[in-house]
Write a protein that binds this DNA or RNA. Structure first.
Lengths: 103, 103
DNA sequence: TGTTCTATATAGATCACCTATGTCTGAACG
DNA sequence: CGTTCAGACATAGGTGATCTATATAGAACA
C-alpha cells in the first residue's frame, strides 16, 4: 500500500467506531474492496505507535466473536491529528492532480 | 512527500514535454505551488532508475539557460507504465476516500 | 489432547526517499 | 588569466515506514 496513509486510515476507522486490532484491518479491507490489505505485521506496530503518541487508547475487551481482544478508541488528540492528516491528504491529492492534468 | 508517487510525477512531467533533470523538479515545484519539492538527491537516483528500466531516455543537450544538461524524454514503455501508474493512483485515491467518507 | 482458529506481538529485512556532500563546466569579473 | 560563482549532475549514507516471517496465547472442537 501507499506509505504515509496508514495512520490516517486507522484513525478514521476507529473514529467511526471503536474496534479491536484485527477488526480495524478487516474493516479497511472490506470497505476498500480489498485495495488496502493491512497485515498484522504492519497493523500492530502502527497501533502501538499511535497509542504511545496518545492518539488512540486501547483497553482489553472482547471481539465480535467473543474473544479476548484489545479494543481501541480515538482520543481528543487523535481527532485533532486526524483533521490535520485529512488536510494533508487533500493537499497531496490536489497537487498530484495538478501534475497529472495541468489546467 | 508521499512515497510511491515520484515515478508517476516524473513520467507525466516529461511526457508533457521533455526536460532536463533539474527542469523536471522545477516544473513539479512550480505547478504544485511548492507542495512537492523534489530535491536533487531524490531526483537523480529516480531518473537513473527509470532510465535503466527503459521508461525514459536521456541525451546530452542544453538547458533553457544554454548550459550542458541531460534531457530526458519518455519512451513507449514509459507511456505504458504511466498508464498503469495513473490507474493505480486513481484506485488509491478512491480507496482512501471510501475509508474517510463511507457511503 | 492435539489441532485449528482468532488475536496480539515482535524481529528483521526492504525500499524509497532525504540529507549532506562532491564534482564538473562555463561564465563573469577583477 | 586566475578566481569565484552558479547551474547542473552525481552519489554515499542514513532514516523511517511498511512488509515478511515467525512466535505466543487462549478457546473451540474433534
Amino acid at each position: 500500500m501507499l506509505k504515509g496513509t496508514l495512520d490516517l486510515l486507522i484513525l478514521r476507522t476507529i473514529e467511526i467506531q471503536p474496534r479491536h486490532g484485527l477488526g480495524v484491518s478487516d474493516r479497511i479491507a472490506q470497505i476498500t474492496g480489498g485495495t488496502f490489505v493491512v497485515k498484522p505485521g504492519s497493523l500492530f506496530p502502527a497501533l502501538h505507535r499511535l497509542e504511545q503518541e496518545g492518539y488512540i487508547e486501547g483497553a482489553w475487551g472482547e471481539s465480535d466473536q467473543g474473544r479476548r481482544a484489545k479494543v481501541y478508541r480515538i482520543t481528543a488528540a487523535g481527532r485533532k491529528r486526524l483533521t490535520t492528516e485529512r488536510r494533508s491528504w487533500d493537499r497531496i491529492v490536489t497537487a498530484v492532480g495538478q501534475v497529472l492534468d495541468p489546467a
